[in-house]
Amino acid sequence: MEQAEADLLMSPRGAAALEAEAALPGTPDPFARSAALRRAGFSAGETAALLTQADLRRRAAGRLGPDAARLLLTRAGLEQATRREVAAEHAARVRAAGFDDVVDLGCGIGGDALAFAAAGLAVRAVERDPVTAALARHNLAPFPGARVEVGEAETTEAADGAAVWLDPARRTAGHSDTRRLRPDDWSPSLDFVAGLLSERAAGVKLAPGLDHELIPPGVEAQWVSSGREVAELVLWSGGLARPGTGRAALVLGRAGAAELTGPGPAVDVPPGPLGGVVAEPDGAVIRSGLLGDLARATGSHPVGPGIAYLTGDAIEASPFLDRFAVEAVLPLDPRLIARELRARGIGRLEVKKRGVDLEPAAFRRRLGLKGDGEAVLIATRTIKRRVALLCRRLR
């Protein structure tokens, strides 16, 4: 975003127009809204800025909650902004560890800083880009204990008694799905991150697909999922890390928060025979390497070698699992599967897969579904063969 756009959005004239645009119901016709703003005296550039910002606010509602209605955003800032419920967990940990002050290095538009401030922490937010810093200053204005300054994360000195939070900017596209991330893909680099974690009580938010080999020794690595989607990996150090915890999977859902922890990656449980129930572990458990501990706690085992589905005859409900009752075990043959589905009147089918080369949407189209029934089809590998498990979701 250019400074002129930020100045417009923070001016009384621009703020009033933005509020009116963002409040429009549904998905407004951009051509009609552009014409209306031009008639109201806004230039082409100003109109584009207002419509873009209104669209960002609408998109941000699901991620940032009610705060989105008053925030100023950028596309990159919204993409990287921590989800509201996850940011609240960050703030709660800092508070529980006994800190009153936090330095947010590379605060962006201020997503985490907002949660820290709302938790009653004194926040010093640092952002290298002056325009983004101005937006963060606007966003944090309701909190007198928060201040924003322009500066570099690498050269900012934090007071000895303050906790440090860092969310490095990603230099490469598609970072959220990248399994192997190099230190030079981040700003500041992972080398800087390692130094920070070795010296300070700090929390560093990284992409959940980070290679485990890049996790510095002596830190707590916590994978966080929200709504069954793995949102982030946070590395905690110093007074923000819990003694004896090297790996953690925090699952946030409608029923609240649940966490699985261990001193390090768990010892695997060997695969065993298919039981009457198959369970899909939350992605945070899988990413954290704690699947073996979850299997032992639930009396289950993997359905096949290297497959992250668990099975057993009776697996109790758990916030870390989605469970499915197995109603039929079929060969992974579309013709045989289609025949079985027709016989059962299955017209709505959710397709899941692990360990097989299959594209769920394309596979579902091949089945010619008809009927009023619904089911879940799990394509996977057992110890002996590839199978299709026709299942019913358990609540």
Rank of each mutant, 00 (worst) to 15 (best):
Q3Y: 10
A4L: 13
A6E: 12
P12M: 03
R13F: 07
E19K: 11
E19G: 05
A22E: 08
A22Y: 11
A22C: 04
F31N: 14
F31G: 15
R38T: 13
R39P: 02
L51S: 03
R59Y: 12
A60S: 05
A61W: 10
R63N: 14
R63K: 13
L64S: 00
G65M: 01
P66H: 12
A69L: 04
A69N: 05
L71E: 07
L72E: 09
G77S: 12
L78R: 04
Q80I: 00
A88C: 02
A91M: 01
R93V: 06
G98I: 02
V102I: 12
D104N: 05
C107V: 01
G108C: 03
I109M: 07
A113E: 11
L114P: 02
A115L: 04
L121D: 04
P130E: 12
P130C: 08
A133C: 07
R137H: 15
H138W: 12
P142Y: 14
G145A: 07
R147N: 15
E157N: 09
A158L: 08
G161E: 11
W165D: 06
R171F: 06
T178C: 15
L181P: 03
R182V: 08
A194K: 10
A194P: 11
A194V: 07
E199S: 09
A202L: 05
A202P: 04
L210Q: 03
D211N: 07
L214I: 10
A231D: 14
L235H: 06
S237V: 00
G239A: 12
L240D: 07
T245V: 15
G256L: 05
P271D: 06
P273N: 14
P273I: 07
G275H: 03
V277R: 04
P281G: 01
V285R: 00
S288K: 03
G292N: 10
P305H: 14
Y309R: 03
G312T: 10
G312N: 06
D313Y: 11
D313A: 03
A328Y: 11
A328N: 04
V329R: 14
D333H: 12
L336K: 13
A343W: 14
I346A: 02
R348L: 12
V351L: 04
R354F: 07
E359C: 07
E359T: 12
R366I: 12
L367A: 05
G368E: 13
L369V: 08
G373W: 10
A379N: 08
I383M: 10
R385C: 09
R385G: 01
R386Y: 08
R386F: 14
A388G: 11
L389P: 00
L389M: 03
L390V: 00
R395P: 11
